[in-house]
Amino acid sequence: MLEAKLSEAALLKRLLDAVKELVSDANFECNEEGIQLQAMDNSHVALVSVKLYASGFKRYRCDRPLPLGVNLGSLTKVLKCAKDDDICTLKAGDDADILSLTYEAKSAYADRIAEYEMKLMDIDADQLGIPDTDYDASVTMPSSEFLRIVRDLSLLGESVRIEVSKEGIRFVSDGEAANGNILIKQNAEASGKKKGSIEMNSAVTLTFSLKYLVNFSKSSSLSKKVQLMMSNDVPLLVSYAFNQGHIRYYLAPKIGD
């Protein structure tokens, strides 16, 4: 059985927000280390990988590996019934056919305990092996800045070319009617304050669909920083780390530009 108690429902709400438009159904793989989700979008362009460490929960117990097949739309609805600061407990039996969620709130006048149950499903999803990659460039920046850049450029065109060079990192969008490019320079003062960093072994140029990057940047509510890992001709890794775990996205580049 699984019993996992989170100190705030907001974490799950934000995670669902950051996943549900890419993937409609996914297995939450629960084991003694924590809860993990890995799923690809229907078009096989993007993959999302979420990890919640057992240590990130107020209480965590999982006796044996348990895949919970979740319809993310249904879970989103059930989580909407929780207040952000409610204590949230997830429970499932070994047969994994029902997920129960309990929300506990202490208000000034009374204690409220709300219990919800949702049906689980069998999901036959093939897990992809993600190879360990030594990336040529690693860029860390404020997640709000990344959100702004991809959102702005998505107004102009449907793809973005990302160039990492000695100059810094440049985001370029060539639309039919307008184009734009944004350069972020490695700034000694900024890196001293650890606002961001650019590390590069060799120059990298890659082109990606902006709609996915806009989607990924929904994770800005989970972490103040985002890390972009890039090598020529391999998928981009966009990683957000938070206290209880991480969410990572892989995005296949556009080819033959």
Binding site: S43, V45, L128, A252
Partner: peptide, 14 residues
């Protein structure tokens, strides 16, 4: 114009 690559070209089955 560029074509969208697939993750299946990069990530194999475990």
């Amino acid at each position: 114009p560029s074509a969208q690559g697939s993750l299946k070209d990069f990530f194999g089955k475990p």
